[in-house]
Amino acid sequence: MTTPEIKGFCPGALRPMQSGDGIVVRIRPFNGRLRRAQADGIATLAAAHGNGMIDLSSRGNIQIRGVTEESYAGLIEGLRRMSLLDATPEIESRRNILVTPFWQTGDETEALAAALTDEMVAEGAPQVPHKFGFAVDTGKLPVLQTASADIRLERDAGGGLILVPDGSTSGKPVTSETVIAQALDLAKWFLKNRDSYSRMNQVIADGATLPPGYFVPRQAQTYVPAPGYTPLGAIVGLAFGQLPVETLAGLAKQGGLRMTPWRMILVESARNLPDVDGVITDPADPLLRVVACTGAPACSQGLAETRSVASEIAPHLGVDQMLHVSGCAKGCAHPKPAPLTVTATAHGYDLIRNGRASDPADQTGLTLQDIIKAL
């Protein structure tokens, strides 16, 4: 298998990444939300300065694709005018905060996310690795446990706040007044104990002894993301998390947009599922159970097409099957194991059951039709 290049960082707006279809510029919406004008403005900028395609990442971020060296400056100026940028690339990389989309205006989630943001952009903030992140998952029940994060703010069964290191089955009881300081202390503890690790769950799995106080059992997540109505608006899905600028502009006309790590968007106050081209409103659509990276040729490391292959496989999946199609062994779109993983290689596709894109394959050198027969 060809060894892919590991960049070691995620793209940002101020620190973009070169890909096969141009420069990728990643925007990290503050508190996970875009105002209607901001969403519409991003669509306009992506059309003017990119190739008109936009991605939603597994961390609730939004990426503009196909930017050129000549168009980059104009894009950044437009994003700055809409207050969507951080002061420096270093601050941008630290502000990796995932927020439950089900917060309500004025509730504790909004305040905690804003306070954590303030601390992580401050001069003395812990210098955590680029991919290290936080999850503010402080609704009554957790919804972000399957999303990537290293330090989590959740609630226990009694409704109290707990601070949870990712990989731990228990958390530390905290209050609204103490949780942010305790979260920063936990980040500092990670930095002292991480050795060569970049993620909290690796440190926990290696047997590091947490500071005292982490004894409250976590609630297990029962929420399953799906398109549909919520008291806050309508959730719509996006095949592979990708949408053209016309779709984003169409959604922006419906209301403010809250990003999710599920490649879905919550359209605020929508009482009807938006009739916008390019969105998925049927919770039974098999494309909702397929994750696929950009693949070749848009990704310079992709060894073959991914999304066209994924679209062909999707109708053949069982009702409970989930599929990950990766253009290389990095598995960027879904780093965790999946029930079915298809990895592109220089000699066809590998099929991996219950594993990651880089794991040993059960079958190798497959064609699309071979994969479908093997399911």
Rank of each mutant, 00 (worst) to 15 (best):
R35G: 15
I180W: 10
Y223P: 02
V174P: 04
T44Y: 05
N201C: 12
K192D: 14
D362I: 06
G133I: 00
M264D: 06
L163N: 07
L84R: 11
A113V: 02
L323H: 06
G159L: 00
T367Y: 02
G365I: 03
A357K: 04
C328K: 08
F190L: 08
G331N: 05
P315C: 11
E305K: 04
P297A: 01
S326N: 08
E119W: 07
T247A: 11
P4F: 01
I313K: 00
M259F: 12
A374H: 13
R81T: 13
L153G: 01
L141W: 09
P261L: 08
G60W: 13
D195H: 13
R26Y: 07
T138N: 04
S358Y: 12
M200R: 12
D185V: 01
R94S: 09
R26K: 05
G74Q: 11
S176C: 04
A357V: 01
V267W: 07
S168E: 08
V99P: 02
G124W: 06
E177W: 03
A48G: 13
Q127E: 15
I204G: 00
I204M: 08
A46Q: 09
S19G: 14
R271N: 15
A310S: 06
I352D: 06
R271H: 13
A157I: 01
V267Q: 08
V267P: 10
W262G: 07
P29S: 06
Y349Q: 07
R194L: 03
M82T: 09
P335K: 05
L34K: 11
S168A: 15
G241V: 05
S148F: 05
M53F: 14
K192T: 12
T343S: 14
L251S: 02
V24N: 10
K336P: 02
G171W: 02
S83F: 12
L248T: 11
I54W: 08
E123H: 07
A329R: 14
K172W: 01
R33F: 02
Q321P: 08
P315F: 07
L144F: 00
D137R: 03
E110R: 11
P225I: 08
R263Y: 04
A296W: 10
L232Y: 14
R307T: 00
L14N: 06
E154G: 00
I42W: 06
A48H: 14
N201D: 15
A13N: 03
V24S: 13
L144K: 00
I76Q: 15
D359M: 12
A48K: 15
V267F: 00
R271M: 14
E5Y: 11
H49M: 11
A296K: 09
T367I: 12
A87D: 14
E108K: 12
G355P: 12
I280S: 02
Q18P: 04
A135M: 00
Q254I: 14
D166W: 06
V179Q: 07
F9M: 09
G32V: 07
V276I: 09
